[in-house]
Design a binder for these strands. Structure first.
Length: 593
RNA sequence: GCGCCUGUAGCUCAGUGGAUAGAGCACUGGCCUCCGGAGCCAGGGGCCACAGGUUCAAAUCCUGUCAGGCGCACCA
């Protein structure tokens, strides 16, 4: 695989460099670290290195001269590895491998199968990933959907590169929002029972509140009317949040997003963890009392000012609960905490970073991914939403309309910190305009090819059993090189917490596949199946050199079994990588569409 | 006023300090006797917001300006 090829190239450069240093041809004091990367243009070769340019000032020679010396060394010392070593201004070293070297990529993919792309760079380090964490005061909307898709994809990616990830949902089941929910539901409940009611001014207006109130009425009859209103409201809050949380859980299951733990804010209060956390801060001298309130001295850790954690009336602020929650997370022994937050919470980051440091952990222990807003469009027209008036499109509605595969792909198509336009019509569309179908179709198309092959009694060969020298077209090498990038893409997507890199990669791979498949015949046509046999095969091997010309002119008649076999084996690996990539994103790789 | 994020093709956006900045959509014109046309090929489109700086090399890093979004509670 490429990591291997890439390392071989780096090793070769390093050897050549050492030799030049030894001979004194260039006066190199320290050998710099060497990087190679695939160049932007294929005609520049398979790998390029900027080592000559970084070395130039040190050895007081022009970059071109340095590159020239290295090129000569590489040509002489590694003739079996490189077919070409070029120097390009301003001092690039462009390296082209013998095509056959690339074939080991296909072998690696076949050997690893569904685990091609996984690695162990995470070294089993434990990560707690907290995401969604929507208040149980209403259904999930599209914004939560984006957070859910992103969190799930990040978790899967991190696991693929060797981290141990625990997914957690923090339930804000204490505090004012919940009180407000209780009052809203109680008002609707009274209405439902035919009693007078005053709906709270800043209450929740959505229709779902009525549904929840009716549900309460079904299970409790008119019993709550006998209680004092504050008791009834508290009861309503409990019942409603449970009903809504159950619904959130259902939606997440439908969406294919799962959590190991559901962490309740209430449990922080009931176990005295908030007081414990504040006591610890007090001991460290990070808590001061002023104007009757207790302040966390977060400004000592870069926050712009100190923050109140316990109010004059003795009650805790939301921050106090979050401090206790994050202390609790840290004490569970995770190496890194990752939080996925809506971008409107960004002002909160400095105080949480301060919290982590206050408890003696490095700032980098906490990583926060901000997710920007989603604008919902329908055929290019913006769908207006107002959470205040309860008019918003729920995640469930979106899933019912476009399906969870399309929803996930759209949510993961953009970098998290940019606004996302989500066009419902486009997501539903079954055409090339729709990137989800484009990628899935590539997979299904190959599955179909293999089905047809089987129907026609054409074997699906293993890569080691085919004539790999037949796969030397530019498009074939291009596909293989793209395949070889896959583990690297997975690694970067995971460590940068940026799944969109993988969606872009998959679109690119699908495009290459479609282009190749459109141009090149793989299976013999039905009529010719009977005619070609073992005789045809030996014949073909002798006239290897002319095969590509022939196949252009008489693609359907002249495709030889050895070429069919080689292409099938190649395409099998393409299918594996598409499948692996989609799976990491939580999207299905259909056999048929 | 202060802070964070974002300014790249008509639109939506990719872009790891490297060479001639890319893709999709839209637009124009082609390609199905055949493995799935849910596809492919070709074309036009750019002062990478602007101005400085660092560097052999800047869309990318730094500073400033402008524009848009968001946030600045003893709310959650």
């Amino acid at each position: 695989m490429e990591a291997l090829l890439q390392n071989q190239v780096i090793e070769a450069i390093s050897v050549a460099l050492g030799k030049v240093k030894e001979s004194g041809e260039l006066s190199i004091a320290t050998i710099p670290s060497i990087f190679v990367e695939p160049p932007k243009r294929p005609e520049w070769g398979d790998f390029s290195s900027n080592v000559a340019m970084t070395l130039a000032s040190q050895v007081r020679q022009s970059p071109l001269k340095v590159a020239g010396v290295l090129a000569t060394g590489l040509r002489a010392q590694f003739p079996e590895l490189f077919v070409r070593v070029d120097v390009a201004p301003p001092g690039f070293l462009n390296l082209t491998l013998h095509p056959i070297r690339w074939m080991q990529v296909l072998q690696t993919i076949q050997d690893n199968g569904s685990s091609f792309g996984v690695s162990s760079i995470g070294k089993g380090k434990r990560i707690l990933l907290e995401f969604v964490s929507a208040n149980p005061t209403g259904p999930l909307h599209v914004g939560h959907g984006r957070g859910a898709a992103l969190g799930q994809a990040i978790a899967t990616l991190l696991e693929a590169v060797g981290f141990t990830v625990s997914r957690e949902y923090y339930i804000n089941d204490a505090g004012r929002q919940l009180q407000l929910l209780g009052r809203s539901v109680y008002a609707r409940y009274r209405e439902h029972c035919g009693e007078s009611s005053t709906f709270p001014e800043d209450g929740y207006h959505g229709d779902y509140i009525k549904t929840v109130a009716e549900s309460v009425a079904r299970t409790h009859g008119r019993a709550l009317l006998d209680s004092p209103s504050d008791v009834a409201e508290t009861r309503c809050a409990q019942l409603a949040s449970q009903i809504l949380l159950d619904r959130i859980k259902e939606d997440l299951v439908t969406f294919g997003v799962d959590f190991e733990t559901w962490f309740s804010e209430t449990s922080l209060h009931s176990k005295g963890l908030i007081q414990q956390a504040l006591d610890e801060l007090r001991q460290k001298g990070l808590l001061t009392q002023e104007e009757g309130a207790w302040w966390f001295r977060s400004s000592q850790f870069g926050d712009e000012k100190d923050r109140v954690v316990q109010k004059q009336d003795g009650s805790y602020t939301y921050l106090a609960a979050d401090i206790a929650y994050h202390r609790q997370k840290l004490e569970r022994g995770f190496d890194t905490l990752i939080n996925i937050w809506g971008a409107d919470h960004h002002g909160y980051i400095p105080r949480m970073e301060a919290t982590v440091q206050a408890f003696g952990y490095a700032k980098e222990t906490l990583r926060i991914v901000l997710v920007q807003m989603v604008s919902l469009l329908r055929g290019g027209e913006k769908v207006e939403m107002s959470k205040r008036a309860g008019e918003f499109v729920t995640l469930r509605e979106v899933l019912e309309e476009v399906g969870s595969d399309a929803a996930k792909f759209f949510f993961l198509m953009r970098r998290a910190d940019t606004h996302l336009d989500f066009d419902l019509e486009l997501a539903k569309q079954q055409s090339s305009d729709n990137p989800v179908y484009y990628v899935q179709y590539a997979h299904a198309r190959l599955a179909s090819l293999f089905r047809v092959a089987q129907e026609r009694q054409v074997n699906l060969p293993a890569i080691q059993d085919v004539e790999q020298t037949l796969l030397v077209q530019d498009e074939e090498l291009g596909l293989i090189k793209t395949l070889s990038q896959y583990p690297f893409v997975v690694e970067v997507s995971a460590t940068a917490l940026e799944p969109h890199r993988l969606t872009f990669y998959l679109q690119e791979l699908a495009a290459q596949l479609h282009a190749y498949y459109n141009k090149n015949r793989v299976l013999p046509s039905v009529e010719s199946v009977g005619k070609t046999g073992d005789a045809g095969r030996s014949n073909e091997l002798e006239s290897n050199g002319k095969a590509s010309e022939l196949e252009q002119e008489h693609a359907y008649e002249c495709i030889q079994p050895a070429l069919t076999a080689a292409r099938l084996a190649l395409l099998r690996q393409v299918q594996t990588v598409i499948c692996n990539g989609l799976t990491l994103l939580g999207i299905s790789a259909p056999e048929k569409m």
